[in-house]
């Protein structure tokens, strides 16, 4: 067999420690499916309101009425965890979409155009890499006042350099392929080459990156909430719940473990799905 030049692109991505098997991927999809369902219909299903105090009940351990028990104000942990799904999905999705748009536009432009544009974009990326992200966020929010929206915006700015760098790299690789050079020779406008030709081919990597970003953003947002820098007190946000219930770890462990466990499971599922998606999409149209 005469081997032809080229061959499938090398998989330039690190494998996660936890390899995605069909079972873990199915479980991840199942879990994210449940989350989406809860985000949509959670308020109809939750047995209690997220903020309904029940001071007479006070702190209880899991029982028939309160499945995960209640916290020290008598609020139902189970219901609050369900309400928390919305916050857990909403913020990270905003961050991921924002970083996706910024990262892809800057990365494509820098990788394709090169020259001054590339140099300035990449110096900005270097600068953002050098900045200790979470620390800057904490200081910024500390100065400007705690706000969920501000936390989201700051995280978009902090996340997009990672996307930009990855997208620029794969764009550079695509740019030198004959199909792109053919498009240039045919006189196709730059916009068409970038978005009709190159973009679909790098989409698998952008997508996988978006899922990894989701996991990172969820953890970062929860951490900010935990520190009291994100969402306001009393909100049924997982990070906030974790922070408020951490002192109850011995009285009602479920009050802290439920939101904490949800954060871990959601982040892991997103990572696994991102990895699986990358493998699926990267093979699209590649086989000979």
């Amino acid at each position: 067999m005469t081997t032809l030049v080229g061959g499938p692109r090398a998989r330039g991505r690190r494998r996660l420690l936890l390899r995605s098997t069909p079972l873990t991927v199915a479980l991840s999809f199942g879990f994210i499916g449940i989350l989406l369902f809860l985000a949509a219909f959670g308020p109809l299903l939750a047995p209690h309101g997220p903020g309904s105090l029940n001071l007479a009940t006070g702190l209880t351990t899991p029982n028939g009425e309160f499945w995960f028990g209640t916290d020290d104000l008598g609020r139902d942990v189970f219901s609050r965890t369900i309400y928390g799904v919305r916050y857990a999905l909403f913020g990270p999705v905003l961050i991921v979409v924002g970083a996706f748009v910024i990262g892809n536009v800057l990365g494509l432009a820098a990788g394709y155009r090169g020259g001054m544009l590339d140099a300035s974009v990449m110096r900005w990326v270097d600068l953002m890499y050098a900045v200790p992200g979470l620390l800057v966020t904490i200081v910024l929010i500390g100065v400007l006042g705690a706000s969920y929206l501000l936390a989201v915006v700051v995280l978009v700015v902090l996340t997009s350099p990672f996307d930009t760098r990855v997208i620029r790299g794969v764009t550079l690789e695509q740019r030198s392929l004959p199909y792109v050079e053919a498009a240039r020779t045919l006189g196709l406008p730059v916009r068409a080459i970038l978005f009709r030709h190159i973009f679909p081919n790098i989409l698998p990597i952008s997508f996988a990156n978006a899922f990894l970003n989701f996991a990172f953003s969820l953890v970062a947002l929860s951490a900010l909430s935990f520190l009291g820098l994100g969402i306001g007190p009393g909100t049924a946000d997982w990070g906030r719940m974790l922070s408020e219930s951490r002192l109850l770890l011995f009285e009602n462990p479920a009050a802290a473990l439920a939101p904490g466990g949800m954060i871990v499971l959601t982040a892991t599922s997103m990572n696994l799905i991102g990895d699986w998606l990358y493998d699926r999409l990267a093979d699209r149209g590649r086989a000979r």
Binding site: L4, G6, L177, P178, A183, T185, L186, P200, G285
Partner: peptide, 15 residues
């Protein structure tokens, strides 16, 4: 116009 050597990479695999 130009025709390249490697027929495998001179067409966009997704179109």
């Amino acid at each position: 116009q130009i025709v390249f050597q490697d027929p495998y990479s001179s067409l966009n695999p997704l179109r």
